[in-house]
């Protein structure tokens, strides 16, 4: 076991997979010359050279398509869209090409490609460098969508994503980058995609969440514990495919669900989760399902405004208290 920050845990996972399989290559902006936007590829350029860590021109749609086709033609590319907001530029290649080509071509090709991007707010990056776009892509059959919340998960999941034979979108939260934690040193340790993780066991209320807000949910759980409220925190880790079994099992046990995410609630992951709970665990609920996410506005720049529109530990604590008092 060793301790690494979240960004370096991702680098560590990618390094191990690049050593293990020489068809793993990196495509993106300044991956070698700078180490990606937050150091996720730091050192890889020097270690593996420009043939394997390729600094591309800022041409998101083309280099995403290049990664997708290179995957069909025998490589395992990691494509980095620096800020996930710019995946909109690559959306044709993601949505009309990579996601559908295997199906559309009757299974003739496979597409082992990972599309990485940093995501999320809480750092005053405003409306074009903060978004969480996981729901957009989770909507599309043919894509898998992963959002780790800890260094341990980040390393285990990036390795699984690289080994997967399908297009995987991998979202790395900017506000988690400096967080240090243990990571596995076993080069064969991977975390299967589609498996949630119970980050905290509890009996009174389930908080279903993923990515950065898992951290807020855990902080809230500590505060609530002092009030005698026992919170279970389910970290989805992968939002497509969704670990429905884990969610339902937890909610059936606690009888209460707070569906928490950072981003907008309309047509979101937590819309899906709350529908799932309503359809399949309604009779177990002691209180109605509650959803929490960003207010329905773009990310504001000003720190107090951003704080106002995003979920916070305090808002989570209040929501759980309210559920427990009903």
């Amino acid at each position: 076991m060793k301790k690494l920050s979240y960004n370096l845990a991702i680098a560590d996972g990618m390094r191990e997979e690049m050593k293990r399989d020489e068809t793993v290559i990196q495509i993106g902006l300044d991956l070698a010359s700078y180490g990606d936007s937050q150091g996720q590829t730091i050192g890889l350029g020097d270690e593996f050279g420009p043939k394997r860590v390729m600094d591309f021109p800022i041409s998101e749609t083309s280099y995403t398509g290049i990664g997708i086709a290179a995957a069909a033609a025998g490589l395992r590319p990691l494509v980095c869209i620096q800020f996930c907001d710019w995946m909109t530029l690559a959306s044709d290649q993601l949505v009309n090409q990579g996601a559908v080509m295997r199906y559309m071509y009757g299974g003739q090709y496979k597409f082992p490609v990972v599309i990485r991007g940093n995501c999320g707010g809480y750092i005053s990056a405003a409306a074009q460098h903060s978004k969480m776009l996981e729901a957009w892509f989770a909507h599309i059959p043919g894509l898998k969508v992963v959002l780790p919340s800890t260094p341990w998960d980040a390393k285990g999941l990036i390795k699984a994503a690289i080994r997967d034979d399908n297009p995987v979108l991998f979202f790395e939260h900017k506000a988690l980058m400096p967080d240090r934690g243990e990571v596995s040193e076993d080069p064969d340790y991977v975390i299967p995609l589609g498996k949630a993780d119970i980050k905290r066991k509890g009996s009174d209320v389930t908080i279903v969440c993923y990515s950065y807000v898992v951290k807020l949910a855990l902080e809230a759980a500590e505060i609530l514990a002092k009030e005698g409220i026992d919170v279970e925190v389910v970290d989805l880790r992968t939002v497509k495919p969704l670990d429905t079994e884990c969610i339902l099992e937890s909610v059936k046990k606690t009888g209460r669900a707070l569906c928490l995410q950072e981003t907008w609630l309309t047509c979101s992951i937590m819309s899906e989760v709350s529908a799932l709970i309503s359809e399949q665990a309604f009779e177990y609920l002691n209180t109605p399902v509650v959803r929490m996410g960003q207010l329905d506005v773009p990310y504001p720049f000003s720190p107090p405004l951003e704080k106002h529109v995003l979920p916070s530990t305090e808002k989570i604590v209040d929501a759980v208290r309210k559920m427990m008092s009903e």
Binding site: T23, I25, K51, T61, S62, Y63, T64, G65, I66, G67, I68, A69, A70, A71, A72, A73, G74, L75, D92, Q93, N96, Q97
Partner: peptide, 19 residues
């Protein structure tokens, strides 16, 4: 999708060059 083939052909070429 008009124009979608240009990145795809370029990607196949990248693979051929790499391999």
């Amino acid at each position: 999708i008009v124009g979608a083939g240009l990145p795809l052909a370029t990607g196949a070429a990248l693979s051929a060059q790499y391999l």
